[in-house]
Design a protein around this nucleic acid. Sequence first.
DNA 1: AAATAACCGAGACGGTACGTCCGGTCTTGAA
DNA 2: TTCAAGACCGGACGTACCGTCTCGGTTATTT
Lengths: 199, 199, 199, 199
Amino acid sequence: MPPDPSRRSERSRQAILTAAVDLLREVGYRKLTIEAIAARAGVGKQTIYRWWPSKGAVVLDGFLAAVNEDPDDLSLPDTGDVAADLRGVVRAIVAELADPDLSGVSRALMIEMQEDVELADTARDRILAPQMRAIADRLRAAQDAGQLRADLDLAVAVELLVGPLYHRWLLRTAPLTEAYADTVTDLALRALGPQPART
Amino acid sequence: MPPDPSRRSERSRQAILTAAVDLLREVGYRKLTIEAIAARAGVGKQTIYRWWPSKGAVVLDGFLAAVNEDPDDLSLPDTGDVAADLRGVVRAIVAELADPDLSGVSRALMIEMQEDVELADTARDRILAPQMRAIADRLRAAQDAGQLRADLDLAVAVELLVGPLYHRWLLRTAPLTEAYADTVTDLALRALGPQPART
Amino acid sequence: MPPDPSRRSERSRQAILTAAVDLLREVGYRKLTIEAIAARAGVGKQTIYRWWPSKGAVVLDGFLAAVNEDPDDLSLPDTGDVAADLRGVVRAIVAELADPDLSGVSRALMIEMQEDVELADTARDRILAPQMRAIADRLRAAQDAGQLRADLDLAVAVELLVGPLYHRWLLRTAPLTEAYADTVTDLALRALGPQPART
Amino acid sequence: MPPDPSRRSERSRQAILTAAVDLLREVGYRKLTIEAIAARAGVGKQTIYRWWPSKGAVVLDGFLAAVNEDPDDLSLPDTGDVAADLRGVVRAIVAELADPDLSGVSRALMIEMQEDVELADTARDRILAPQMRAIADRLRAAQDAGQLRADLDLAVAVELLVGPLYHRWLLRTAPLTEAYADTVTDLALRALGPQPART
DNA sequence: AAATAACCGAGACGGTACGTCCGGTCTTGAA
DNA sequence: TTCAAGACCGGACGTACCGTCTCGGTTATTT
C-alpha cells in the first residue's frame, strides 16, 4: 500500500533534496547515487525509495526546490516594446543556462528526459511549459497590438526564439553568450514582425 | 603503453559496433552495458576497453558506422531556390530525428555529450559541424546571389533553422512533424531574407 | 565501518559454507572461485566478502563446520594401555587424511597456510593445536604412570608420532596405509618408552 | 607438434628461471604470474608455454637450478658415528627449510604438489627421493654394522627422522630450530637403535 | 496511559555491472 | 623455426550500487 503523505518527515525531504542538488554539482549526474544521497542526507535509503520512483525524480524535485519559482510570477513585463521585452527574457534564459550552479541540474534533467518519458512529461509541464507560455502571452499581446504578424503560430514562434539557445547549450556548438542572445532575438523578431508593406 | 592500432582486429571492431547499436535499440542507453556488448559481439571485455575509453565513445563510433556518410557528400543541392533547398534539409533532419531506429542512438549520444565534454567535442566535430557547415555553405551561396541579407552571421542563421527542431526533439514539447519543419523554415527564411525595400 | 554480526543471516552463512565445501570436492581448491560459491549458495558475492577476508578463510570455516567437533570431546580414551591408545589415534588420523571427502578440504587448508600466515595461525589454533594437545595429554598420563620416559618434551613427542603421517600425506612419498600407521606408532613408542634398565 | 628442443634458446631458459625464482621471493607464489615472469625475463609468454606445462613446472625447474645439486654428491658422510652423521643431515635440512631464500620456493613447490599430482611425482623423484635415499643408505650401513635394529623398514625410519621437521615447517606448529633438530634426532635414534638386552 | 501502527535510520541482503588482471591461444615481424 | 611482443577470448577478481528487506527506535494517533 502507498505510504501516508501526512506522516512524511519534512525534515528528511529537505535534507534529501539538498543533498541531491549538492552532490549533483560535486560529482555530476552519472556519478550521483541514491546511496550517496541517503548518506549525505543522513537518511535511510528506503526513505528515498518510499517517496520517489527514481533518481531523476529526486533531481527534478531538487530543481524545483532550487529555483522555487512561483509559476504565476512568471509573466513577462510588458513595456510596450516587444523587442526590448524579448531581449530581456532571452538574456535571462541564457544567463540561467550559463550559470554553472544551475546548469548542472538542468543538464541532469535533460539527460533523464531522454530516457524516461514519464519524467519528461512532468518536467515539461512543471518547468518548460510555464516559461514558454509566459513568452507566448507576451507575444500574443504584441500581436494584438499589431506589432507582430497576425497569422503566427505562437508555439512555433516561441521555439524559434529559444530553440537556438538550447541548441548551443546542449550541443555545445559554440559558447552561449549574451551577444548570441541578442543576435537571435533580432533575427527572430524580423521573422515575427508584420509583413512589410508591398507598395 | 598504448596498444598498437596496426594489429587491431577489424573483425572485432565491426562486431562490437554492430552489437552496440543493436543492443542500444533493444534495451536503451541506460541499460546498455559493456558486458552485454562484449557478449553479443563474442569478444572479451578487454578488447572494448583497449580501444574505447567509455561506453559513449563506442556508441559514437557505432553511430558513425551506422550513418556511414561521406562528409564530402554532405553538401546540399543548389537548385537556385533557397527556400526549396532549405525546406529539403529541414525535412530530412526531422525525418532522421523521428526515425525510431536512428533516434535512439542520437539520444544516447546527446546524453553522453551532457556529461563527457571530450566526447561532446568529438561528436560535434565529426557529426554536427559537417552538417551545419553544409547548410551554412548553401546559405552563403544564397547570400552571394543576393537572396539573403548581406550582414548575416551564418552560424547563427543555421542555428535559427535547426535549433527549433532539436528543441522539440530533446525537450519533447510537442510532436516533431513535417508541418513543423515547414513552418520553421518559412519563419526562418523571413528572418534571413533581404531587407524589405523601405520606400 | 565493520558489519554488524548480530544482523548476520545464518541461512546465508550455512549455504556459503556448504557450497564451498561441496565445490571444493568437485573442482579442487585452485578452481574454487568465490563467484561459484556465491552462485551455488544463492548469495551475493558481497555477502561473502563482507564476512570473510579470503577464499581460504571460507574454506577454513567450512572445514570447521564439516568436522564440527567439540574441542572438549577431543580427549583420547585412556585404557591404561598407551600403545593401544596411540595406535587408535594414529590410525584415526591416517583414516581422516586418506578419506577422499575430507582430505580435499584439508589439503586446501594446507595450501592456504603456506601463503597466509594469519590464516595459518587460526588453523593451527582451531584445528591442529587441540588435536595435538589431546595426544599430549594422553602421553602425560602415561608418563605419570611411568610408562614413558620422564624427561620427554611432549610437544616433540607428539610430532614424532604425527610428523611421519603428514610427511607421507603431503609429500606423497608413498601411500598412507594403516600398516604405516602401526609401524610408525611402534617405532615412536620405542623412542618414548622408559629407559631400558642397564644392568 | 612438439617443439624442437635443439633449437631452444638457453639464454631465454635461464632468464625465465631466474625471473621466476626472483619474483617468487618478491611476491609469493600466489601472486606469481606467467605474465610477470615473461615481462621480467624479457621473453614472450609463448616461450614459457612452449617449454613448460604450468607455473608449478617452471618453479620446479627454478628450484632445481637454484639448488643445482649433483644427485650423486648427495651421499652422507660416514664417520662411523651414526648419531653424529644423522645429526648433521637433520640440522642441514632444518637450515634449508628455515632459509628465507630457499623456503619460499620450497613452499611454492609444496603448494603445487597438493593440486598437481603429476608435478608431485616429478618433484618427489627429482628432489625428495634422492635425499631420502641418501639417508636410507647411511642407515643401512649402520644397520649392517649392528648399530641399528636389523628388522627396520628403512623408508619408515627415514620418515620418522624427517617427518617431524616438515610437520613443523608446513603446519607452523612451532619455530623450527636447531635444538628441535637435535631432540628429534635423539628420539628417533632411540627408536631405531638395537634392541636393549633384556636380562 | 497504553497500545498500535506508521515512518524513520541503518544497513544486510541477492543481484548486476564495473573496470582490471591474468590464463592460455594466436598472429606478426625480426633474427 | 624460434623468438619478443602483444592482441585476442574468456573468466574471475574485488568493488560499487541497485532496489528490497528486516531490524530497533522514535513519533503520532487510536483505544
